[in-house]
Design a protein around this nucleic acid. Structure first.
Lengths: 340, 340
DNA sequence: CTGAAAGCGCTTACAG
DNA sequence: CTGAAAGCGCTTACAG
């Protein structure tokens, strides 16, 4: 039924080995036989069997992509399609395919990664998140399996290749940006502190307050979980402080949209009464009301570069550890007001 | 280095065949030996080699997911993560993995599908789109390779299993909804007519106008391409008609957001001056201003069901052709006004 | 209930 | 420049 290397060999009057070498474009085969064999391959509509190739050559030409546990960052968030687009773009250029993790819970994801690694399903893995004390990451590190991360690892920094934004710095810059526009009471609505991206941004925010000698009360910081559970209440409380903030930094545009809505309920207008700035610059942030000032974090590049460095590792086990920071770009729209 | 079935066999004092049967949980093996073999597998940290298994058993336990050519529907659109979530959920339940297409252009995608099929990379394929005269779909149909589609195929309806919304009906219903609220001049901003979803919705819209004996001028229909190229101009023209619409149906929420913005530029308020309703109900549609009345099309279910039917096909070549319509649900928010 | 043997479709030293 | 042979790590009739 299926045409194999043997059929091609017979038809072209060469050995299977030669056909195999033609497929790999081995330079030791004469152009003449190459041409002849290729002709036969075309005529018989021969396509190499992926599985057989992988088994014999001990490589798979595919990379595994692991998303964070789905209730958190991954879904409903435009980050995902965009980072995948970056990954696919780079992978495709090197003829690599993408194998996607499908697990729901953290344990399922871990099991899937183990079976990807042990079962030789993929040549390398990209972790699309960085979590504090992540079992999956520790496993990959210990087995010395090629992997890269989108996001700075919590520890073992010097052993792990990753791609990230400079989250501490961009959060610091964001506060400075507000400071320059006259803001002195600056609140921060953070992300899930189990993810390093969230702790980094929080740290950058805090450091910026210290550096600018601004009030640094815990009242100005709202945790992800508190916000998720009772967002309107927490915003309510925030605005009822003796010195309510004049500006809010949100961990993500989705969070910013929600804040705007809760403020609306309180008849507080953005940016007239309070300014909001945010990170990640979703495609829709130009369309919300008011259009959101947000930091573009180059999601495509995060995926692209993570893949690039992974492929280097796959092709060369001795490839050096790389920490690559991707550029960001503040998109100023209408959610922030100068009160200087 | 890697521990194989042979190592396990030796250690457990059985033959490799027996180990293989234990892996497959073959009922002909005694519970006692199963237990013994499993113990050894655990102790040696044995994991079956995926490639070898696939090669020998001629199945891959993975399904290929093909997105539309990326400039069009697929990216920046929350449809993608959500449909993937549905696919992963169902696939994971049957221990299937996901192989994602990475191609950029239509030709690249086609080549990738051919190599997935011929190279036996996957057991079946899900097409995440339905396009008019699609080479990839024709290829799958002709090779009789198991596949399902998210979206009604352009032709060969009776040979192809697909999952879809009833796009003609929901577009018809949308017009009826506006009609009941007093609207008589109803415009439609459509999607890319190369996709069946767009032609179906357009047809439903047109039929509804006819059924309700409403004005059915071409001036009330704006094509996707015209809108993309000069959206503000086309909305401008629309509103300067002798009888401008009192309501607009948008093909997608993203389009609706853009329309709202262009209307704003013209100082036309939604819903005070004009109503807007839309399809797909993105997660953010609650946050835009005004919150958008939109039809939830159950994206997760589309992915889930497409996968379910695909797996049935994979497991049974004789599985009947199925056309499954997924429920929709109108989410009423504040972009539509009753002018009756 | 279990084993010996052939085979899945390739790749890759080794030999010439 | 090309071929014969072994091997990648499994599965699966077949035989007992």
């Amino acid at each position: 039924m299926t045409v194999t290397i043997i059929d091609v060999a017979r038809e072209a009057n060469v050995s299977p080995s030669t056909v195999s070498r033609v497929i790999a474009d081995n330079p030791r085969i004469s152009e003449q036989t190459k041409r002849r064999v290729r002709e036969v391959m075309e005529r018989l509509e021969y396509h190499p069997n992926f599985q057989a190739r992988n088994l014999a050559s001990k490589s798979t030409k595919t990379i595994g992509v692991i998303m964070a546990h789905s209730t958190t960052l991954a879904f409903q968030n435009p980050f995902f399609p965009e980072v995948i687009r970056g990954i696919c773009s780079r992978a495709h250029a090197s003829m690599y395919g993408i194998y996607l993790s499908t697990g729901g819970t953290e344990d399922e994801i871990f099991e899937e990664v183990v079976s990807m690694v042990q079962g030789r399903k993929v040549d390398g893995i990209i972790l699309l998140y960085s979590r504090v004390n992540d079992r999956t990451m520790n496993y990959l590190k210990e087995t010395r399996f090629p992997f890269t991360m989108v996001g700075r690892p919590y520890q073992f920094d010097d052993e792990i290749t990753y791609v990230d934004n400079d989250n501490k710095k961009i959060a610091h810059d964001m506060v400075d940006y507000l400071y320059q526009r006259g803001h002195r009471q600056i609140a921060f609505i953070g992300g899930d502190l189990n993810f390093v991206v969230s702790t980094d941004r929080l740290e950058g925010y805090r450091q910026a307050l210290i550096d600018a000698e601004l009030p640094n009360s815990d009242d100005y910081f709202i945790q992800d979980q508190a916000f998720k559970e009772k967002g309107n209440k927490s915003i309510h409380e925030l605005m009822q402080l003796a010195a309510p903030p004049t500006a809010i930094v949100a961990h993500d545009d989705l969070v910013a949209y929600e804040i705007v809505r809760y403020l609306e309920e309180l008849s507080i207008r953005v940016p007239a009464d309070i300014s909001i700035v945010s990170f990640n610059n979703h495609a829709l942030s130009a369309y919300v009301s008011p259009p959101l000032t947000s930091l573009d974090i180059s999601i495509f590049d995060l995926g692209f570069e993570a893949t690039k460095f992974l492929l280097e590792k796959v092709q060369n086990t001795e490839a050096p550890v790389v920490h690559h920071l991707v550029e960001t770009n503040l998109i100023e729209r209408e959610s922030c007001k100068n009160i200087g």
